Amino acid sequence: MEALSPQTLFTGQQLVWLPECGSTNTEAQQLVVQNRATDGCCVITDNQTAGRGQRGNQWEAAAGENLTLSVVWKPAFLPAADQFLLSQAVALAVHDWLTALLGPSPQLRVKWPNDIFYGNQKLGGILIENTLSGAKIQHSIVGIGININQQQFAVSTATSLARITGRSYERAAVTARLLEHLERRYLQLRAGRIGALRTEYLRVLYRFQEEHEYEADGQLFRGQIVGVDEAGRLAVAVRDQLRYFDLKEIRYRP
């Protein structure tokens, strides 16, 4: 990948490019442990061979065709109890970036907690791993994988920018713009503008205030996503009851 030149204060100013690695999150974590990662350090690779996703799933992407990176931040200002705010800020940053590339579209949504969907197909995913020190976040590793130029997928539920638009993308240029959007939302969070973050997150949330089928505890039920609480749990209205779910407690049905 060509050199990146993001117009940022710190995000991506330290850039570590690896032709291939198991996981950019793992590589970023090692840099942190070795005290070699500045605030905003970005690890990026052309080929991630053992990427991790939510629920412990593996994230697969064709070599040299997509965007796979991890950013190290040190959000000491953010209490550990509010760490889902960081997840919301990152998801919104990716949504901002994709909106700039695709134009505004009701098809582009954030699927709770922070997968990126276009229609009913997955365009990308985010995995944030926080290291806590008491009631504070010591550092966060923000892993992002977005399908850019890949055309063929093993599953029908995946898509890419190229498949959506019919064109290919210069990955270095779009990656630099992503780092700029990430820093903008991170600075919004650091400035304490959390009300706006929460409101905007709900505005782009997949299936928000729509009736759909879900599965929990082996039972199918119909419900309506009505919000996300401060701990990051999904709030679903089921008949006259409001139920809250953590990440591994609920599954979306088609």
Results as ranks from 00 to 15, higher is better:
175 T>M: 11
139 H>C: 10
92 L>Q: 09
143 G>I: 02
136 K>S: 14
136 K>D: 14
137 I>W: 06
110 V>I: 14
127 L>N: 05
206 Y>I: 02
102 L>R: 10
87 S>E: 02
169 Y>S: 10
207 R>H: 11
147 N>S: 05
117 F>Y: 15
170 E>R: 15
87 S>H: 02
189 L>I: 01
178 L>R: 05
170 E>T: 14
98 L>I: 02
99 T>M: 03
105 S>W: 07
119 G>Q: 03
91 A>C: 05
156 S>P: 03
91 A>V: 02
110 V>R: 04
151 Q>D: 13
172 A>T: 09
105 S>D: 12
199 T>L: 05
125 G>Y: 07
99 T>F: 05
95 H>V: 01
94 V>Q: 03
135 A>W: 04
195 G>N: 10
128 I>T: 09
126 I>V: 12
100 A>F: 02
197 L>V: 14
126 I>Y: 12
157 T>M: 00
166 G>I: 15
164 I>V: 13
80 A>K: 04
91 A>G: 15
155 V>P: 00
175 T>Y: 04
126 I>W: 05
131 T>M: 07
78 L>K: 01
75 P>G: 01
129 E>L: 00
138 Q>T: 08
96 D>G: 02
198 R>L: 00
81 A>T: 13
96 D>R: 14
119 G>P: 06
154 A>D: 15
149 N>H: 10
180 E>M: 12
98 L>T: 08
169 Y>T: 11
120 N>A: 12
92 L>M: 03
132 L>G: 06
208 F>C: 01
206 Y>D: 12
74 K>Q: 15
126 I>N: 07
196 A>D: 13
163 R>F: 01
175 T>S: 15
169 Y>I: 10
96 D>L: 01
113 P>E: 03
179 L>V: 09
186 Y>S: 00
104 P>I: 06
189 L>M: 04
86 L>E: 11
82 D>P: 00
162 A>S: 15
172 A>C: 07
128 I>V: 08
81 A>R: 12
164 I>M: 06
112 W>T: 12
106 P>F: 03
